[in-house]
Computed example of a mutant assay.
Amino acid sequence: MAAVLLTPPPHSEDLLTSTLMKKMNTPTLEQDVNVTVIGAVIAVVLVTLLSVIVLIIIYMYKNKGTYRTYEQRDTDPEGSVQMEDLPGKGEKEEYFI
Score class of each variant (00 low, 15 high):
K89I: 03
L6I: 09
T26R: 10
I58E: 12
L16I: 10
G90S: 01
P27N: 13
Y95V: 12
E78H: 05
E84W: 00
P9A: 06
G39L: 03
I53C: 11
M24T: 13
Q82G: 13
Y67G: 06
I53P: 01
L49W: 02
K89H: 05
K22M: 04
D14V: 01
N63P: 02
G79R: 06
K92S: 14
D74H: 01
Y95P: 00
V41F: 14
G79N: 08
T26I: 11
T66D: 01
E84M: 09
E93F: 03
T19D: 09
E94T: 15
L49D: 13
M1E: 09
M60R: 13
V81T: 14
L49Q: 10
S80G: 11
P8S: 07
V81G: 13
A43N: 12
Q72V: 11
K62T: 14
L20T: 03
V41G: 08
P8A: 10
S80H: 12
Y70L: 05
G88C: 01
D14E: 14
N34I: 04
V54R: 13
E91T: 12
L6N: 10
R68T: 15
V52Y: 10
E71V: 00
P27T: 09
T17M: 07
L20I: 09
K23C: 00
Y59M: 12
N25A: 04
Y59P: 00
V4C: 04
V33R: 05
D74A: 06
A3N: 06
F96D: 12
T36G: 07
K23I: 04
M21A: 15
V54L: 14
G79V: 03
E71R: 02
T75F: 15
Y67L: 07
V35A: 11
L55S: 10
Y95Q: 09
T75W: 15
K64Q: 08
K62I: 12
T36Q: 12
K64H: 10
V54I: 14
R68V: 12
E91I: 04
I42Y: 12
P77R: 05
A2C: 11
V47W: 07
G88M: 01
M21T: 09
D14W: 08
S51D: 14
P10Y: 02
I57E: 14
V47M: 07
T66I: 05
V47N: 09
P8L: 12
A43G: 10
K92I: 08
H11L: 13
H11I: 01
D14T: 07
M24I: 01
M60P: 04
L29D: 14
P77Q: 01
L50V: 11
E78F: 05
E93R: 04
V4Y: 07
E13I: 08
T48L: 13
M24R: 13
A40C: 03
K92D: 05
A40S: 09
Q72L: 09
K23V: 02
K22I: 07
M83Y: 08
P9N: 02
M1N: 08
L86H: 06
I42F: 11
L16C: 08
